[in-house]
Nucleic acid binder design. Structure first.
Lengths: 259, 259
DNA sequence: CGTCAAGTTGAAACAGGTCAAATACCGTGG
DNA sequence: CCACGGTATTTGACCTGTTTCAACTTGACG
């Protein structure tokens, strides 16, 4: 369950058994559920807690007054929503459940205590927060420069790798409970065009996507087709040797970046 | 010069004279210059310092292997590049000068000292960092949902307001040393289309842009036309009453966000 | 086995891209 | 002070990726 977060953080650093216990306890606090499509936090709210997603998918999104919606980020199990959130007065966006969801609230005090007593965890949480904004930057590139085909492929690569980092993949497969409408709102495309583009991706044998199940037969091929470079996920740290979950190792060329 | 940063931070909180002195001293350290188009930091580099832009404009950008470039963020005087940068091993993007530029390096130790001795400054720097990522989120919305016309208008609003926050506007005018090619790389459009769209904006009387000089005759009109909502700049804090620089006050409806 | 959301299809329209050339601008050196 | 060369802006004609609209099919679930 909540060792998903531990899995993820260990990409970056090795945690002591005590560290792990602390993280495991975090998720024992106030735990909540929401149904699909319900909001967890709304734009304008004063943020009160950091939320740790235990189960289900959520997203950060923003609405324009005329009804356009942009999904700004996806949250998968093991993700933290807004580590930093206490400084700002009001949320400038909403967070909503995409599927039925379970999450744990982490209070300000709990977080403060962890941060003052457990430097390894603290550093790892920072790393996680920084990767989150690196992802946001990559989304900017995705929306600004990539074609519909590349854009969707890129998003699928990213989510697959993130799921793999927490241990939620089985070989080259994973659950993928996102509708085409939601993919459209995340990629800035139309539902119709997402549909056609997914068909193209299927046609080229790059993905298999039925129902809520995704298979990426050849991840490297999909990465290439999507102009994907995993640099931005910053998984290349101390712990990353342990990252060979499911017998696979990060694929694209993250070592070769000369001076 | 470097009281630009002070101006900006005072949007958020009131700083003591001592705080201000500390910030003023920061920019006395190692100061560098770069010519237009030179890089300050390159993708793959190990980041070593936080940079404070003193003069000139810069940008964060990412290249795709085939030459496509996305500008991910603009930096104007008073902006800090990457407060947080020490945790990650390698830059996943580059920072380049758009104009000839002057910037001050702030070392890890200096920063650490400030953070341990000056809680007001620390909090204000946090606020600044969080606003930076809020801007990144808004860019996602901009690229994903807005038309070319809205997109450019939105960008101009944002930059104008950011310049105003540091005191670099004169009434409804400001310097705007960005080429159409750079605007294109920031908005995910073509140079050609940026050119035509700017003409449209001029045609509607929403902007005047010649050479390196921008005038926004009616900011509120431009905001409306661009579906701009200044929430995301989070300027509505303690110090914001002092924000009436140049006799103007923030315009759009940031108060009205009902429960 | 009905109902509602999600996915799929087709045809037509349009926003924005492409290519290529012309013009304006600006700093530099003579 | 002017001519020069390179960069930035502007224009025109044409092309295409993506949107729009509207209907139809499939699938999940009670």
């Amino acid at each position: 369950m909540h060792n998903l977060l531990i899995n993820k953080l260990e990409q970056f650093t090795k945690l002591s058994p005590e560290d792990k216990q602390v993280l495991a306890d975090v998720a024992r606090g106030r735990v909540w559920v929401r149904g699909a499509r319900e909001d967890i936090i709304q734009e304008g709210d004063k943020p009160t807690c950091v939320n740790l997603i235990l189960k289900g998918w959520a997203c950060r999104y923003k609405m324009l007054p005329d009804g356009r919606r942009q999904i700004i980020a996806f949250f998968v199990p093991g993700d933290l929503c807004d580590l930093h959130v206490f400084v700002l007065r009001a949320m400038d966006h909403s967070i909503g459940a995409l599927t039925p969801i379970t999450f744990a609230e982490i209070s300000r005090e709990t977080l403060r205590n962890i941060m003052s007593d457990h430097p390894r965890i603290t550093e790892a949480l920072w790393w996680d927060a920084l990767v989150t904004v690196a992802i946001q930057r990559e989304w900017t590139v995705n929306l600004g420069q990539r074609s519909a085909f590349e854009r969707l492929g890129h998003l699928l690569c990213e989510l697959f790798l993130r799921l793999r980092a927490v241990g939620l993949t089985q070989g080259n497969a994973c659950e993928f409970p996102v509708t085409q409408t939601e993919l459209a709102d995340a990629t800035g495309l139309t539902t119709v065009h997402v549909n056609r583009t997914l068909q193209e991706l299927r046609g080229e044998g790059l993905i298999e996507l039925h129902g809520k199940h995704l298979i990426i037969p050849d991840l490297e091929a999909l990465e290439t087709a999507s102009v994907f470079n995993l640099n931005y996920l910053h998984g290349d740290h101390e712990g990353s040797a342990l990252d060979a979950r499911n017998g696979e190792i990060g694929s694209a060329g993250q070592r070769s970046r000369g001076a």
